[in-house]
């Protein structure tokens, strides 16, 4: 059996980190006060401090998009922004979309099998919400190009594109740009037939 050297076990010198900072955020519509280590990324604050683990850590380098959230409505990779940089900002995570029931994009991802393992999925959906709000959905190519910051290693890309288009047709709460996008898709579909 194991023998433990008591000398190895040291109590931490401080219960709280040396570099602590106090921040106020709005997360999914609720205001939130938090003491964080100044080095803590927004991603780690969400996952490890607030237990909002729907936002995923895939690379920690801003390369995979699994940690995508909306910051004041814009899609942001939360691993590349420190929590303290988001003082006073409004953060929307996967846990904050849908109003007691699945958001149209969530429904469409299930219906079109827009994932397999599901790990990149919250980031894909948050990115797709941002994409729709940006109005960058006027063609398949535009959707593909602007969803390319979100890697899916299971290879569900074709189904992800179908899910986004389907959600657009179903109607996602979004500005004028989205309505124009829907119109463009409808016209394409008519041409196709």
């Amino acid at each position: 059996m194991l023998e433990i050297d008591e000398g190895q076990v040291r109590q931490s010198e401080a219960a709280y980190p040396q570099h602590a900072a106090s921040i106020a955020l709005t997360i999914n519509g609720e205001s939130c006060q938090l003491q964080v280590d100044a080095r803590t990324t927004l991603l780690d604050a969400l996952r490890d401090r607030l237990h909002l683990t729907g936002t995923k850590k895939g690379c920690g380098l801003g390369q995979c998009g699994a940690c995508t959230v909306l910051v004041d409505g814009r899609r942001v990779v939360s691993c590349l922004t420190l929590a303290v940089m988001n003082q006073g900002k409004s953060i929307t995570t996967i846990e904050g979309i849908g109003d007691g029931e699945l958001h149209p994009l969530q429904k469409a991802f299930v219906e079109h099998d827009g994932f397999q393992c599901g790990y990149c999925t919250p980031g894909q959906i948050m990115s797709a919400i941002g994409l729709i709000q940006e109005g960058r959905t006027r063609s398949d190519d535009e959707i593909r190009e602007n969803m390319s910051g979100n890697l899916c290693r299971c290879g569900a890309y074709t189904n992800i594109v179908k899910a986004i288009k389907d959600a657009l047709v179903q109607g996602v709460d979004a500005p004028e740009a989205m309505r124009q996008a829907v119109e463009a898709i409808r016209q394409d579909a008519e041409k196709g037939e």
Partner: peptide, 8 residues
């Protein structure tokens, strides 16, 4: 398990 995955 789709609903669990798309809601995080």
């Amino acid at each position: 398990d789709g609903p669990l995955k798309v809601t995080g």
